[in-house]
């Protein structure tokens, strides 16, 4: 029994070498710090206390921040799915040449050829008060006053997220769709299924794992972000992370750590929920 055990450990060693120092240890440090007290100048006093957690959990602000962040996460998820699924579907089922499909796929990655900051700044000339959208709408007479809601608003935040994260939805869905045998679709049509039936009973159930993976990416990224919210809302909205970023700024490490622990637990719960709906492991091995 000793030998197979040893080789099993050897197999997981590389992964452990990455996960333990870069994921597990920092998480534990945060967890421990969340139970410490602060001396008010950035130092931690190793007296165990629950007060950080109690403060976070009893604050009305925490609740409001979660509502805002969840709203962004859900809207972003919805729109990335609505845009991402058809894009992936088109690439897999309607682009016959593989070369063209790869080319179109690369086009989807163009937003990533530049930094996140540039990408967000580039929305300003488009969505700003005298931006392209407003001047066009004014020009064709649809509106009389420029729309203020386009930039530095919740709408702008969602637009930026969707722009940034749709690819995270496209890639895993593309993958799961590409594994569908085209003859299976043909067999469904042969059985008398309409296009809608094929979509409902064949394509969507068979791409569940991709949808779940994409959703996990999008939701965890939005939940853990503060930068896009800060820039695109013009300071008008805050997210969960931006609140504890403020805490770090004023050296309130234990309070930030307690917020981080809560966020981690919320995210774990959300991902567990997704995995409950779709058993990714089973879907992939099937």
């Amino acid at each position: 029994m000793q030998r197979p055990n040893l080789s099993a450990w050897l197999y997981v060693t590389p992964l452990m070498l990455v996960l333990v120092p870069f994921f597990l240890l920092p998480t534990l440090v945060v967890l421990v710090a969340s139970f410490f007290e602060t001396d008010g100048f950035g130092g931690l006093l190793p007296t165990l206390t629950l007060s950080n957690h109690v403060d976070v959990l009893t604050s009305a602000q925490t609740f409001l921040l979660y509502v805002t962040t969840l709203k962004f996460a859900i809207l972003t998820w919805l729109f990335t799915l609505i845009i991402g699924f058809p894009v992936a579907y088109f690439l897999v089922f309607h682009v016959r040449s593989q070369l063209l499909a790869i080319g179109l796929f690369l086009i989807c990655t163009i937003p990533f050829w530049t930094s996140n900051i540039i990408r967000m700044i580039s929305w300003i000339p488009l969505l700003g008060k005298e931006g392209l959208v407003n001047s066009t709408l004014l020009g064709i007479g649809v509106i009389r006053e420029p729309l203020e809601v386009l930039l530095y608003s919740g709408l702008a935040v969602v637009i930026a997220y969707v722009h940034q994260l749709t690819i995270f939805m496209v890639v895993p869905i593309f993958n799961s769709l590409a594994r569908i045998d085209k003859r299976v679709v043909e067999a469904a049509l042969d059985a008398g299924a309409s296009r809608l039936d094929v979509m409902r009973y064949i394509i969507i159930p068979m791409s569940k794992s991709g949808i779940a993976l994409g959703s996990t990416f999008v939701i965890s990224i939005v939940m853990g972000d503060f930068f896009v919210v800060k820039v695109m809302s013009g300071g008008g909205s805050a997210s969960v992370v931006s609140a504890f970023y403020e805490n770090v700024g004023v050296l309130q490490y234990p309070a930030a750590a307690a917020s981080a622990v809560l966020l981690t637990l919320v995210l774990i719960a959300m991902i567990a929920l997704i995995l409950r709906v779709v058993d990714i492991r089973r879907e992939i091995t099937q």
Partner: peptide, 30 residues
């Protein structure tokens, strides 16, 4: 369906996510 033909595909093209019963009943479901 209008032709009232049915095809059995090479390597079968069964619906991998449906049980045997649901595979067989698929045409009736639609």
């Amino acid at each position: 369906v209008e032709r009232r033909t049915a095809m059995m595909f090479q390597s079968y093209a069964l619906f991998p996510h449906l049980t045997v019963r649901d595979n067989i009943a698929f045409a009736l479901r639609v």
